[in-house]
Lab assay of single mutants.
Amino acid sequence: MATGGRRGAAAAPLLVAVAALLLGAAGHLYPGEVCPGMDIRNNLTRLHELENCSVIEGHLQILLMFKTRPEDFRDLSFPKLIMITDYLLLFRVYGLESLKDLFPNLTVIRGSRLFFNYALVIFEMVHLKELGLYNLMNITRGSVRIEKNNELCYLATIDWSRILDSVEDNYIVLNKDDNEECGDICPGTAKGKTNCPATVINGQFVERCWTHSHCQKVCPTICKSHGCTAEGLCCHSECLGNCSQPDDPTKCVACRNFYLDGRCVETCPPPYYHFQDWRCVNFSFCQDLHHKCKNSRRQGCHQYVIHNNKCIPECPSGYTMNSSNLLCTPCLGPCPKVCHLLEGEKTIDSVTSAQELRGCTVINGSLIINIRGGNNLAAELEANLGLIEEISGYLKIRRSYALVSLSFFRKLRLIRGETLEIGNYSFYALDNQNLRQLWDWSKHNLTITQGKLFFHYNPKLCLSEIHKMEEVSGTKGRQERNDIALKTNGDQASCENELLKFSYIRTSFDKI
């Protein structure tokens, strides 16, 4: 039985969820670079991206490699990797027998973001014989899940209580170790020597080791999670996991709180800001991140802002960003909400898709409305799209047979046209069989910064309504002859009103 693990408890099935942008060198404390989270699957090609990484700022997932063999891993080693800020997950990587050479110096898994409450997941690794993470000293947050690894031993010899604050939620089941077939031998045991430290858990006094050649490092209890030197002297209180010299914040392997210019500090002093819960960055760093993602459509890219001495992905609820200094300031009234469309555009074809934009005031991208039916549609669209004030790209209304009016965009005031449909149009209306009105132009103002209007096959939309939009939106004169079809717009509506004058002759039985 794995020490510190839980057996036999019912657990939810383990679901495996399925960018080499360097964020800056980590400095003297770390020998390499800070790398983003990685999802490495199918083959070993991307694994080489770990070569210079000291910190993975995010998670590391290595999974679904069915053609790899043990010899493929023999020359692979990433000794610079010290810390993973989120979680480490391995799933069905064939041929991998140990992690001792792959990650010989991995010391800390912070667990800032977890995989279903777990910071370390080893699942269905069919050839893994031992973990071998002999320098792993601290899992700051989260638990361990090690399950269905039929060859995995050296679990009962690990004292997880020396690595985690609590072992109650560890789930370590259905491994070879369960069948008591392992016969784990710690260093020196074969020669009758006791080389590794022994600890007591559940009444068992057991030597602690990761492999037959690597003991588990056990520091004096007084050192807590700070770690200790090879001689057993406690590291500085700002260290986490390990250090090369005692009581020196510049000799830590990793930091308990924050890293700044080669030393570990309790908090980031001005003019620095907390970033990702582990390091200090200056304003320029946060500003660069903001600008890199301002026009990016890459998933996970955030326009970072500053709030409460932190550089964070977005302002919290009730705050909006001051564009001059990136500071989050309290909103006066309802907060603006910028919604970034991942692929640059979004099609609204149902109430469900409209709900995804609920509360958005600025759309960074283009909207395509293609709704053919739905219950209580006008009210639903207004509830979900009615706060949109600005669209950076274009607005396209296409084959939306259920629409009679666009009044559900009740606050839309600006279409920038930074991206144009077919390279020309910022407003595009095609084949809307029941569209009769755009907006009530006596109450609604709309500016279209650039781009043209396109109207074709809107049989109940009168040309007068379209011409009014040209005047109000500032697009009059931009359109070419064929942009607004004269014969297919309003051709099934009563669009022309003329005053009919009647004269009559009164007659009676005795007068003409």
Rank of each mutant, 00 (worst) to 15 (best):
H28Q: 10
L29N: 06
Y30T: 06
Y30V: 13
Y30S: 13
E33H: 11
E33Q: 11
V34G: 06
C35Y: 01
N43P: 00
L44R: 12
L44W: 11
L44F: 09
L44N: 07
H48K: 04
E49C: 14
C53S: 00
E57V: 11
H59W: 05
L60C: 02
L64D: 00
M65W: 00
M65P: 01
T68L: 04
T68N: 03
P70N: 08
E71S: 14
D72G: 04
F73R: 01
F73T: 04
F73K: 03
D75R: 04
D75F: 12
F78P: 00
M83L: 08
I84L: 05
T85H: 07
T85W: 00
Y87S: 00
L88H: 00
L88T: 00
L89I: 05
L89K: 00
L90N: 00
F91C: 00
G95I: 05
G95K: 05
S98H: 00
S98T: 07
L99Y: 01
L99G: 01
K100R: 13
D101S: 14
L102R: 01
L102T: 04
P104E: 01
T107D: 02
I109A: 00
R110V: 08
R110A: 14
G111R: 00
G111P: 00
S112W: 13
N117R: 01
N117Y: 06
N117T: 00
N117L: 00
Y118I: 04
L120M: 11
I122T: 06
F123A: 05
F123L: 00
E124A: 01
H127S: 14
K129A: 08
E130A: 12
E130W: 07
G132F: 01
Y134H: 01
Y134M: 11
N135S: 09
N135W: 04
M137P: 00
M137W: 08
N138M: 06
N138A: 10
N138H: 10
I139K: 00
T140E: 09
T140K: 09
R141Q: 02
R141N: 06
R145L: 07
I146P: 00
N149A: 10
N149R: 00
E151T: 00
C153L: 01
C153A: 02
L155R: 05
L155M: 11
I158Y: 01
D159Q: 10
W160H: 02
W160D: 00
S161V: 05
I163W: 01
I163P: 00
L164M: 14
D165V: 09
D165Q: 11
D165G: 11
E168I: 10
D169V: 13
D169H: 15
N170C: 11
N170G: 10
N170E: 01
Y171W: 03
Y171M: 11
V173Y: 04
N175W: 04
K176T: 11
D177P: 13
D177Y: 02
D177F: 09
D178M: 12
D178I: 06
E180W: 14
G183F: 15
G183V: 14
I185P: 10
P187F: 10
G188M: 07
T189N: 08
T189Y: 11
G192C: 07
G192R: 08
K193C: 12
T194L: 14
A198K: 15
A198T: 07
T199M: 06
N202P: 11
G203E: 11
G203R: 07
F205T: 15
V206F: 13
E207L: 10
C209N: 02
W210M: 06
W210L: 03
T211G: 00
T211S: 08
H214E: 13
H214A: 14
C215I: 05
C215Q: 03
C215H: 00
C215S: 08
Q216M: 08
P220S: 04
P220Y: 04
I222G: 11
C228Y: 02
C228N: 04
A230R: 14
E231K: 08
G232A: 08
L233Q: 10
C234F: 00
C235Y: 01
H236T: 02
H236S: 12
H236G: 09
E238C: 09
C239K: 03
G241P: 00
N242A: 07
N242L: 11
C243Q: 00
S244Y: 06
S244R: 09
V253E: 10
R256N: 15
Y259D: 07
Y259M: 13
D261V: 11
G262V: 03
G262Y: 01
G262T: 12
R263P: 02
V265E: 07
V265P: 00
P269H: 06
P271K: 11
D277R: 06
W278P: 01
R279T: 02
R279A: 05
R279N: 06
V281S: 00
N282D: 04
N282T: 05
C286V: 06
C286I: 03
C286R: 03
Q287T: 13
H291M: 14
H291R: 08
K294M: 04
K294T: 07
N295Y: 09
N295I: 00
R297Y: 09
R298L: 11
R298H: 02
G300N: 11
G300L: 12
C301N: 03
H302E: 09
Q303S: 15
Q303P: 11
Y304I: 07
I306K: 03
I306P: 01
H307S: 10
N308Q: 13
I312S: 10
P313T: 10
P313S: 10
C315T: 05
S317T: 07
T320R: 11
T320E: 15
M321Q: 14
L327I: 07
C328Q: 03
C328D: 01
C328S: 01
T329N: 09
T329G: 14
G333E: 15
P336W: 05
